[in-house]
């Protein structure tokens, strides 16, 4: 059974009289350990798709099975545990909590699964080490560069041993050098730790790092190819 399995996902936003069909019947299945890049023009529904996969949002219709769990049949508020254990997020805007040290940011997911403080700190330091930031553990987000902040966010997505990482334009706010750093990190996580990574990007260079490329247009999947 696939790790991620969607059947005919639709998402329609209705604002007043206007309906926006952000997703129009998307069926995808992703196996454990895959590194998938998602591309497509702006407004084609990539983020909408990923937010549904990440259990942050619900489709209007269609079915989504995540690691054997029928997510579409479960209320969003009941999915906090799933997000905590199975999913790590990396956002374009980093989304670290301000005025809170890198270490505390990385510890946060473990606060919500009630890991004891000592273990929390050990694991968080370990994760920071994995992204090469153990020296910056006590820095605040605004004392770190964009690339460093994004690596803290990646450490945060690793720390609960979630098998999946969703990254929505993780390099969108980074310059080329930092982008390369971050993408090399993702590659390592995929190769060495076996993480399943699904990454949205606008840049073909970035998509190069992935082993599979899905393309969206107007809320539909228009291509899905695996690199040899």
């Amino acid at each position: 059974m696939s790790l991620i399995e969607t059947t005919d996902l639709y998402k329609t936003y209705t604002i007043g009289d206007v309906s926006v069909h952000a997703l129009q019947g998307v069926s995808v299945s992703i196996e454990r350990g895959e590194f998938v890049a998602v591309m497509g023009p702006s407004g084609s529904g990539k983020s909408t798709f990923m937010n549904i996969l990440g259990c942050l949002d619900k489709p209007t219709s269609g079915k989504y099975i995540l690691d054997g769990i029928d997510v579409t049949a479960t209320e969003l508020s009941k999915l906090a545990g799933v997000r905590n254990r199975k999913i790590g997020f990396v956002f374009q805007g980093f989304n670290l909590i301000s005025r809170t040290t890198a270490l505390e940011n990385v510890e946060l997911p473990m606060v919500y699964n009630h890991t004891p403080a000592k273990e929390r700190k050990e694991k968080a330091l370990e994760a920071l080490k994995a992204v090469g930031l153990e020296q910056r553990a006590y820095h605040m987000p605004n004392q770190l560069s964009g690339g460093q902040q994004q690596r803290v966010a990646i450490a945060r997505s690793l720390v609960c041993d979630a098998p999946i990482i969703f990254a929505d334009e993780p390099t969108g706010n980074l310059d080329t050098k930092m982008s390369i750093e971050v993408m090399e990190l993702f590659t390592r996580l995929n190769k060495e730790m076996g993480k399943t990574i699904i990454l949205i990007t606008h840049e073909p260079d970035i998509a190069e790092y992935a082993g599979r490329l899905i393309t969206f247009r107007d809320g539909k999947k228009v291509s899905d190819e695996v690199k040899k």
């Binding site: 545990g81 997000r83 919500y112």
Partner: peptide
Amino acid sequence: TREIGIRMAIGATSAD
């Protein structure tokens, strides 16, 4: 609100 969103995304329940 954003901070709440981040916390929820990484596993905070409504109760948390």
